[in-house]
């Protein structure tokens, strides 16, 4: 034992020594080389900690905002990959400054905004969130009337799979998204069975395969989504949404509500006076803008920062409006 311990101690001591010495060694790399562009504002901005929720559209928002904050305001931007709920937690505890695409979440709004007052609404992103049931393009073309949920039972046999048995399969999504699909199937008396795909990747791969092999598929999906620039999925109409029709999850029989997607900032950050607060609040763009940036990443395999740069360089007017 003694020998090994001694060697270990030796290594540790020497490592510490090396590190210590290194601290006196230099600093020749000029700190000033860091931020470019916004000269005097650098110190004022400080940190901007953006939560990154696990879907690509969100990544587009986050990195475009982050890129602008870094290059135009000189902020030190960090991204944290987090699920939605964890991001809210983070804003409440002060480890996260902002969430840049929020889909509803009435329970969290009540908990953190209304009651806790640790999180604030930072205005709409300009994107419209749509949740619904979709079929691949070839199906919409071949069976035009499938786009009405009333006709779905007619085609139920088409959608049978080994997972759904003698019923048609309705493929559900990423576990992050709240769905009413089980209740909808029951209440609309559809001869379908909800099968869980388990992740966004599962849904997208299923659509790709369905379109390529011309196999039938009915699945839960959402917009804005980069995948729409690869494939124009067709939405199946459910009975129209009216206010409060989704109040009771047991009797629900209507479409998902349209979402006005918004941004959130932590109360602490909002009060910090950082110029990035204004940027987050003023940020707005369209579904197409977002899909474009998302496509840069997913189809062209660009890094999020490169994709953001490409879009920012091409849209100086929109960016300028955010910085006013």
């Amino acid at each position: 034992m003694a020998r090994g311990t001694r060697r270990l101690t030796l290594a540790c001591v020497a490592a510490a020594l090396a590190l210590g010495l290194s601290a006196c060694g230099g600093g020749t790399i000029q700190n000033a080389t860091a931020p470019t562009g916004g000269s005097g504002t650098a110190a004022a901005c400080g940190d901007l900690r953006i939560a990154v929720n696990p879907w690509t559209g969100y990544v587009s928002n986050a990195h475009v905002i982050g890129y602008v904050a870094k290059t135009k305001l000189g902020c030190n931007v960090t991204y944290s990959d987090l699920k939605e709920e964890v991001s809210w937690q983070g804003m409440a505890s002060g480890t996260i400054d902002t969430v840049v695409e929020n889909w509803g979440h009435n329970d969290l709004i009540k908990k953190y905004i209304t009651d806790g007052k640790t999180v604030e609404d930072a205005g709409p992103t300009g994107n419209d969130g749509i949740i619904g049931w979709y079929v691949p393009p070839w199906m919409a073309e071949k069976y035009p009337d499938i786009l009405d949920s009333a006709n779905l039972n007619k085609y139920a046999d088409l959608f049978k799979t080994s997972e759904s048995g003698d019923k048609g399969q309705l493929l559900d999504g990423d576990p992050s998204y709240v769905t009413n699909d089980e209740a909808l199937v029951t209440n609309l008396k559809l001869n379908f069975k909800v099968v869980v795909g388990g992740s966004e990747a599962a849904l997208i791969e299923s659509f790709r395969s369905a379109e390529k092999n011309k196999t039938p598929l009915l699945a839960y999906f959402y917009e804005p989504q980069w995948f729409f620039s690869e494939m124009k999925l067709a939405r199946v109409k459910l009975p129209a949404y009216t206010d409060g029709c989704d109040a009771d999850p047991k009797t629900i029989a209507c479409d998902y509500p349209p979402y006005k997607l918004n941004k959130l900032i932590s109360a602490k950050f909002a009060a910090s006076g950082s110029p990035a607060v204004g940027l987050v609040k003023k940020f707005q763009w369209t579904n197409d803008d977002q899909n474009l940036v998302s496509t840069y990443m997913s189809r062209d395999n660009m890094t999020p920062d490169d994709a953001a740069k490409k879009w920012v360089d091409a849209n100086p007017d929109k960016v300028a409006a955010w910085l006013k």
Partner: peptide, 22 residues
């Protein structure tokens, strides 16, 4: 992990529990 690729049942519930507050 299986729950993320369509395994459903317990695996999916764990994943969903990780993501959804309720």
């Amino acid at each position: 992990i299986g729950g993320m690729v369509g395994g459903g049942s317990l695996g999916y519930i764990v994943v969903a529990g990780f993501s959804q507050r309720e």
